[in-house]
């Protein structure tokens, strides 16, 4: 049931920022998440600001220092089949390929995938929950099998993105354009925990647009990927998943980035596990220690302790498969 809204499609970033700064404006990239939210009445919108005419938000190009710049309007399908991304940043390619369905990937964009609203069924449903205007989080004592085991507190959503964990693992930096010009935000600092603000998922301020993501040069010899577990074979969000980028040199882990999906309100980097790995050989003992470090501090709700097991399983599976 789409409510009434005005529609604006600016052709310059300056105009787009101006339109988005107005009260009740919402950004439309691929539209796949926005239209669902509007249909479900998740938030009120006076105007839909379509970004699709902003040419500078499209496309993938090399950066001078050997990295890659991906425009926020690049579709997930374009990312999933981009040969350079598949070769140098497999975690991102696999993340994009594992999201949603083929048609949604043809339409949904990287920017939209990063900025999509949570899929919590209370948030999306006819419940006045804390993330909307309500008093409390229904998941706390409700149907919480899909909810967070890390970082929950006042709201127990999990971040729905399959590309964001990869981008955090790859140490990507987002460019954000807003009323005050452009700023750079590392993806690792882009997302906001409920403890900070349970009404938003990221640092974008009113009127700000995520315009591009810049990936630094891929470290030599890095092994990476994204492993996602879900109920259905496709068209499903992660019960838990792991985006990783690991460099093994001379039999030892030189650098490890492990970021979990589906278990926390933000892409959940398990820095303790990374620490455990760094400088060590990837033997069974190290893997076991990393597995334990990855789940340390988990606070499951009544129905989602299984996610701890899934995290253990996926960390073990991934690390064991990396050539020593």
């Amino acid at each position: 049931m789409l409510p009434n809204f005005a529609y604006v499609r600016p052709s310059t970033l300056v105009d787009a920022v101006k339109e988005l700064a107005k009260p009740g404006a919402a950004a439309h990239a691929g539209g796949t998440d926005l239209i669902g939210c509007l249909r479900d009445g998740v938030f009120d919108t006076k105007s839909v600001v379509s970004l699709t005419a902003l040419k500078e938000l499209h496309g993938v190009s090399a950066t001078p220092d050997g990295g890659l710049r991906i425009g926020a309007l690049t579709t997930l399908a374009e990312i999933a089949r981009h040969p350079e991304i598949a070769k140098l940043y497999p975690a991102l390619a696999q993340g994009a390929a594992s999201a949603a369905s083929p048609q949604l990937r043809n339409q949904g964009t990287l920017g939209g995938n990063i900025c999509q609203r949570p899929r919590c069924w209370y948030f999306r449903g006819d419940f006045d929950c804390a993330r909307k205007n309500g008093e409390f989080c229904y998941a706390e004592n409700g149907e919480n099998r899909y909810h967070a085991i890390f970082g929950g507190e006042t709201c127990h959503i999990v971040h729905p993105s399959d590309t964001a964990p990869a981008l955090v693992a790859l140490e990507a930096v987002a460019t954000v354009a807003g009323p005050n010009g452009k700023r750079k935000v590392p993806l690792g600092k882009f997302f906001v925990l409920p403890a900070v603000d349970h009404k938003r998922e990221n640092v974008l301020a009113k009127g700000e647009i995520l315009t591009e993501v810049v990936l630094p040069k891929a470290p030599e010899g890095a092994r990476g990927g994204y492993r996602k577990m879900r109920v259905r074979g496709v068209w499903d969000f992660a019960l838990a998943g792991l985006a990783y980028s690991v460099v093994v040199k001379g039999g030892k882990v030189e650098r490890a980035r492990l970021v979990l999906s589906g278990v926390a309100p933000i892409p959940w980097r398990v820095a303790e596990a990374e620490k455990v790995l760094t400088g060590k050989a990837l033997d069974a003992a190290t893997v076991k220690a990393a597995v334990e470090a990855a789940v340390a501090g988990a606070k499951p709700l009544a129905e989602n302790a299984y996610k701890i097991d899934l995290v253990r399983a996926v960390v073990e599976e991934v690390l064991t498969a990396i050539p020593k």
Partner: peptide, 19 residues
């Protein structure tokens, strides 16, 4: 509701006509 838009399969229910 799948249709092709510029030859690419998309859901017409999530596509605003103006788009």
């Amino acid at each position: 509701c799948t249709v092709l838009i510029d030859g690419v399969a998309r859901y017409s229910c999530l596509t605003l006509a103006l788009e």
